[in-house]
Simulated assay, not measured.
Amino acid sequence: MTIDRPRSALMAVLLAALPAGCTPVATVGPSRPPLAVRGSTATVEIAPVLLAARDHFPDGAEVRNGGIPNLVGAAPVEGLGGGGAADVATHAETQALRYSVAHPDIRIILTVTEGLYRIVARRSAGIASVADLKGKRIAAIPTTSSGYFLARMLASQGLGLDDVEVVRVSPIETMAKELADRKVDAVAIWEPHADNALRALGTDAIELSGTSIYRERFNLNSTAAALADPARRARIVRFVRAVLAATAAIERDPRPAQALVAATGGFTADEVGRSWPHLAFPATLPGDLVDLLVDEEAWLAAQEKRPARERGELAKLIDSSVLEEALAPPR
């Protein structure tokens, strides 16, 4: 397996600290190129995919920083690596919706991880509840699951994004400092950045849980064209089977996956460990996924000033047949 590591100096130190046998290596013979896997390697959610590629996929996989743009030939996103085609790619459901407007052949084939988001805010800013966010400056990324989560949290109290000032902070690693420096009053972001913000504030922090409001669906995606190619489909099915095996391994002992995602993403072991309770690893296609897509589509369509797609059209973005094949006994 080959894994892309965006922070090479820190990566070398972290990889050296891994137990013997855990260092990622190329496992592909010269006769066949590795399966091209793209995903944000600076996320904790990608852990099962990394472990699958390293330990459970003898075909060989090349995991590099990227995402859905690599599936459809779209322009690379800043911070998500370069170009290059992918066989499969990870991303939150928000991006599958966004890119599928122009590329309706995108297919969600597995929910790998669920992110259990929360808002971290400063008590000293007068915030004790979601309702108190009105008029406050909130760090979030509007075009991502972070923005949708914030919108859902506000809506739960009859508020909208117009009732707050959304501040886009880049890079997201600086959100905790912006909060501690009182440049923003709250942050709505995924792990480990939410937990880093919590620690930066200490006793001034208040955590507003969104578990009952929204769960990010960090999905494995492909395209209808890739899945229609018998050879590519067979490899993708085997990779999904590898993710299922990796998920089972994580349930038994999460430490190898935690060490791997720390090394790959440039996180400390402490950051990953503290983030872990805010993640779930279902490795399935949740029954309410279409419902989420419908709700989120309405929000995105309003943002992008276009008509919202109908439920039937959105349901086509989910292809359960790959998971069904992966779960079936090998022939």
Rank of each mutant, 00 (worst) to 15 (best):
R235A: 10
V120N: 08
E271F: 02
I68N: 05
E45T: 13
A74H: 02
I236Y: 02
R233T: 06
A75L: 09
L50A: 04
V294D: 02
R311P: 03
G84K: 00
S320F: 08
Y117A: 15
A283V: 03
L227G: 01
A226P: 00
P171M: 11
A228T: 01
D295C: 13
F239E: 08
A151R: 12
T268K: 06
D253M: 10
L150P: 00
A139I: 05
Q303G: 15
D132S: 09
H193D: 15
A47L: 13
V13G: 13
A326I: 04
N196T: 11
D270W: 13
E297T: 03
P33I: 08
A96K: 01
I236G: 03
P33M: 11
A92L: 14
Y117Q: 15
F149A: 12
T90W: 05
R232A: 11
R168Y: 14
L71N: 05
A121M: 06
L314A: 08
G287V: 05
A280C: 11
A17E: 12
L35C: 06
E310L: 15
P330S: 08
V272P: 00
G29P: 02
G73W: 00
I68F: 05
D295E: 15
F218L: 10
D181Y: 04
F281L: 10
L293E: 06
A42M: 15
E173P: 06
F149K: 02
S124E: 06
F267A: 09
P330C: 09
D105A: 09
P48R: 07
I213K: 04
T247L: 10
G83K: 00
D59R: 10
F218R: 06
G210R: 06
A326P: 01
T2G: 15
A283K: 01
T94E: 14
P33K: 07
E78C: 13
D55F: 05
P256S: 10
S145T: 12
R331F: 10
F149I: 02
F267Y: 12
E325W: 03
D132M: 11
P329H: 01
V130N: 01
N221A: 12
N65A: 14
A86W: 00
W276E: 09
H103M: 04
G115C: 11
T211F: 15
P282V: 12
L80I: 07
V112Y: 01
A234H: 06
G287T: 08
D295Y: 07
A226G: 07
L289A: 08
E114C: 10
A302Q: 11
R331P: 14
A89M: 02
H278D: 13
R168L: 14
L154V: 04
L14Y: 03
L300S: 10
A52P: 00
I119M: 12
A186P: 03
V13P: 07
K305S: 15
